[in-house]
Design a protein around this nucleic acid. Structure first.
Length: 915
RNA sequence: AGGCCCGUAGCUCAGUCUGGUUAGAGCGCUACCUUGACACGGUAGAGGUCAACGGUUCGAGUCCGUUCGGGCCUACCA
């Protein structure tokens, strides 16, 4: 053991060391022991788009706390790591990189990202599929490596031997297998429908990938003349340019205003196309004029109307959001330019009746913020209702528990109203849809493997599908494919269903819901038994963190500055379920201080242990034993110390239980607060101070070393409780304790070393009485301005047991309170400076007592007590309370009254004596 | 258009599910202390009509309703 332990804890010299060892020793592989309870979790795979952010760190901290806790309880724990190929997000980044290479001069400009991406898209097309994929793989290697290094540095106790990636060869094979099975069952189909199309990304996206933004807009009223020239119908629209694609006008069949209009024909302004008026229930007579222009190719509702009425679908916008041939003279115009021109022309023809301000919510691409275009397009879809039903039941009947509970309702609401899922993407990076079309007979061949010939006509010219799958299609399979599906592996048998999933709310539908559906579909069982939704980490101003705002926190940067343990602890103690976290450096600093406190407590103990000399040290080490063999109960140490030992072991028993209860319910903030408070304000502030004389004294050959044994066992127990929260510092200190040579890691030892048997209410009560006396004395000294001096004092009580307690521990009391002497008096004092329910306390000193100050303090206390007493009395006089409140509450209130009354009485008397 | 969350000390938040001591913590603030673990420390203290109003109850920060203020989500509202 080093003799020099630095005074200030420096995590940077310790954390990387242990991080390395934990990985090299493959410490966190599951034990694969069937006799043990199992606890498995697959990581929410981070996207290989860059590096981990502080939100990941929170997620990994929460998971790691639970994993380390379960492991220390002796469970067979699997935490499976891995990453997601993140099809669209990664492709965007790689394109951006390609652009950056040739346009370095844009660096730093606000428009850089968009310009790089445009250029990158051009370069992608130029280099072709194979070269581009190569670039993506390069990027994936870089980013994946970075993520792995970050996780190692954060101490995530994952099993790296089971690391997976959603585009690993066997994973991809499984994805295609799932596709073909769903296709064969008719749950995947191809069709031409309205989809959300992002003109900038050049692909369809799902409903979930569209963000809604409230923007000021206008409602334009346009006149559509009747074909026979007998007037017109006015329609209201927010998108006048789409009128070029109108193939009807619809009204509600019950709308009297248009009763006679239905079936008649209108002339579409500008293009002069003749279109019918149809009646459809969808139309709300109360909105606008009650007449709706119908643009089947560019609006999902209109598409529905068109299907019902067999209307023509006219595509007037193309995939770049430019007007098509069908738009006649407007061909080639951008959609917004076209809007202006259409409005101008309508005005010129006198057909624009009026315009009104109208706020509207526009859908934008969640990736690039471009306004998405509802577009008629041939895409692949997944039928969701049949898959959703079992997934709804699994949550309703409790096979999956969602925490916090309000997310359960949100999940169910979404699932009840689920729509089919557009799963094809016009991208390159991702899983190719396993479909081939025979160029000879047009047959569609779906197969997980590359087909050699057409299954119908044996033709060999097969054209492969070029679309890839939505990235969430493969993520949905994560819990079972990572464990080996479709093979029936041991891992799959043993670790599926997983026990827990932890994720942010933002991906509950994207990922959570779809995993549940796919798990039930392909494994016939839920993918996880519990789903915990964690909080969002915001910046100090509660803003969402984003690159564009420049308020993102890099986990590596803060951990390097403050230490991983401090950041982990700050996150954990802020993580109240259902509440977002405001990230602040102040907070992290205060938990760095906590790490330093732990370090110095350890330093103090180890330093004094060192001072004992080799012989005594050996004796202490042998007697301390190890948690694996010995029950951790307080050993006898003689009357003055025994109380402290019995008290701290009792507290340890309670705190262990409370931490476990909190963790079982994902109350990370509560669990971390309990151990924080215990370590600092009980173990350090009171226990260590109490036993200090004993352990700073040389230990003779004949002396009992029980005090040392108790101290080491308490300290060790505390390190165990702390370990899931602060793995590095606890590992380091634990290894410096005696008898640790043969053991690899604290993470492989039991969590709670002190069991419930150590609970000792009597010791806790005695300790509280002494603490109260010490605090009263310190308080009195501070008030008298005598902090520096040793002062004589006296205490009085009628309780002889208490008097005896104070007497036995007199030495400790004098030392902790800074008193010179303490006279113990049976009975009452003529004036009691400090009055508690149990005793009176008074300083004896030369200086004149400041009667005014004393009177005012006692007066304040009297008022406080009076108020409390008043309330209690009123309650006890209330018949209803006595009749209706539970007996134990009534009893507690009664004894409280007695206590308050006696205290009040004493304060009053003291005041009277003061005159 | 529906739904959810938040409003508690100067600041950041626990506590509300499961109603019952004199409502807690961290930071900040005040006073004192460099006492051989720790000044990233110690000791003592100041600071809150728990957003407002109404209701239920013997009893409300906690349950119910309404209002105000802030945030978020879902949605095929022309």
């Amino acid at each position: 053991m080093e003799t020099e332990i630095p005074k200030v804890y420096s995590p940077e010299s310790i954390e990387p060391h242990w991080a390395r060892i934990w990985v090299d020793e493959k410490l966190y592989r599951p034990v694969e022991d069937a006799s043990r309870p199992r606890f498995s979790l697959v990581i929410p795979p981070p996207n290989v788009t860059g590096s981990l952010h502080i939100g990941h760190m929170l997620e990994h901290t929460e998971i790691d706390i639970l994993m380390r806790w379960h492991r220390m309880r002796g469970d067979d724990v699997l935490w499976l790591p891995g990453t997601d190929h993140a099809s669209i997000a990664t492709q965007m980044i790689v394109e951006q990189e390609l652009g950056r290479e040739v346009l370095p001069e844009m660096e730093g400009r606000s428009s850089a990202a968009a310009a790089w991406r445009r250029e990158g898209q051009r370069r992608r097309l130029e280099m072709g599929l194979d070269k581009f994929m190569e670039r993506c793989w390069q990027w994936k290697e870089q980013s994946g490596g970075r993520i792995r290094r970050q996780m190692e540095r954060l101490g995530a106790s994952v099993d790296w031997t089971r690391e997976r990636f959603t585009m690993d060869a066997d994973y991809s094979r499984a994805v295609l297998e799932v596709f073909s099975r769903l296709y064969r069952e008719g749950l995947i189909y191809r069709g031409t429908y309205i989809v959300n199309w992002c003109p900038r990304c050049g692909t369809a996206v799902s409903d979930l990938e569209v963000a809604h933004e409230e923007r000021p807009g206008k409602l334009w009223y346009i006149r559509y003349p009747f074909e026979d020239g007998s007037g017109y119908v006015t329609v209201a629209t927010t998108r006048p340019e789409t009128m070029l694609g109108d193939t009807a006008v619809a009204v509600n069949p019950a709308d009297d205003r248009y009763r006679n209009a239905v079936g008649r024909r209108l002339v579409l302004p500008l293009l002069k196309r003749v279109i019918p008026i149809v009646a459809d229930d969808f139309v709300d007579p109360g909105f606008g004029t009650g007449a709706v222009k119908v643009t089947p190719a560019h609006d999902p509702n209109d598409f529905g109307i068109a299907t019902r009425h067999n209307l023509e679908q006219l595509k007037i916008l193309d995939e770049k959001a430019l007007m098509t041939e069908a738009a006649g003279p407007y061909k080639g115009l951008d959609r917004y330019k076209a809007r202006e021109r259409v409005l101008d022309d309508l005005r010129a023809e006198g057909l624009l009746e009026k315009e009104e301000d109208y706020p509207l919510s526009v859908g934008v691409c969640s990736r690039c913020k471009t306004v998405v275009e509802p577009l008629l397009s041939k895409q692949w879809f997944m039928k969701m209702q049949p898959l959703a039903e079992p997934a709804i039941r699994a949550v309703e009947d409790g096979r999956i528990r969602i925490v916090p509970e309000n997310y359960r309702k949100i999940y169910l609401d979404w699932m009840y109203n689920i729509h089919d899922w557009c799963i094809s993407r016009q991208l390159w990076w991702g899983h190719r849809i396993p479909v081939w079309t025979c160029e000879q007979c047009g047959e569609e061949i779906v197969s997980a493997d590359l087909p050699k010939a057409c299954s119908k006509c044996s033709g060999s010219k097969l054209r492969p599908e070029t679309d890839v799958l939505d990235t969430w299609f493969s993520s949905a399979l994560w819990p079972f494919v990572t464990l080996g599906w479709p093979e029936e592996t041991d891992d799959l048998r043993r670790y599926y269903p997983t026990d827990l999933m932890i994720m942010g709310f933002d991906i509950l539908f994207f990922w959570g819901a779809r995993m549940i559906m796919m798990g039930l579909k392909f494994m016939n069982d839920v993918p996880f038994r519990e789903l915990y939704i964690h909080a969002l980490v915001r910046d100090a101003e509660r803003q969402k963190m984003s690159k564009t705002k420049g308020n993102v926190i890099d986990p590596l940067e803060v951990t390097e500055k403050y230490g991983t343990d401090a950041v982990r602890f700050a996150l954990a103690i802020s993580a109240a379920p259902g509440t977002d976290i405001a990230f602040s450096y102040d907070k992290i600093e205060s938990y760095r201080a906590f790490a330093n406190k732990i370090w110095n407590a350890g330093r103090f103990i180890l330093m004094n242990l060192e001072k004992l000399g080799p012989e005594a040290r050996k004796r202490v080490a042998a007697a301390t034993g190890s948690a694996a063999r010995d029950a951790f109960v307080p050993l006898p140490t003689g009357p003055t110390l025994e109380l402290a030992d019995r008290w701290i072991f009792s507290r340890l028993a309670t705190v262990s239980r409370e931490i476990e209860e909190a963790l079982a319910d994902y109350r990370f903030h509560e669990a971390s607060y309990k151990i924080y408070h215990f370590f600092w304000h009980e173990f350090c502030d009171w226990y260590l101070e109490w036993v200090k004389p004993e352990i700073t004294r040389p230990l003779g050959p004949e002396d009992s070393c029980n005090a040392w044994v108790n101290l080491l066992r308490v300290f060790e127990s505390a390190l165990h409780l702390l370990h899931p929260f602060m793995p590095f510092i606890t590992e380091e200190l634990w290894h410096r304790l005696p008898n640790r040579d043969a053991e690899v890691s604290i993470s492989r030892t039991p969590f709670a070393l002190v069991t419930a048997q150590a609970a000792n209410p009597d010791a806790e009560k005695d300790f509280e009485n002494i603490r109260t006396l010490v605090v009263a004395a310190r308080n009195a000294k501070a008030e008298a301005g005598l902090q520096k001096e040793k002062v004589a004092a006296r205490a009085a009580t009628e309780d002889s047991a208490l008097l005896n307690l104070f007497d036995v521990h007199q030495e400790t009391i004098l030392r902790l309170a800074g008193l010179e002497s303490l006279d113990l008096i049976s009975g009452r004092l003529e004036t009691g400076t400090h009055v508690t329910a149990a005793f009176e306390f008074q300083l004896l000193y030369e200086k004149k007592i400041d009667l005014g100050a004393e009177r005012s303090r006692l007066g304040k206390e009297r008022a406080k007590l009076e108020q409390a007493l008043e309330r209690v009395k009123k309650q006890l006089e209330n018949r209803n309370f006595l009749d209706r409140a539970p007996q134990d509450v009534v009893q507690a209130t009664e004894s409280r009254r007695t206590e308050l009354e006696s205290q009040f009485q004493k304060v009053v008397e003291s005041l009277e004596r003061l005159g």
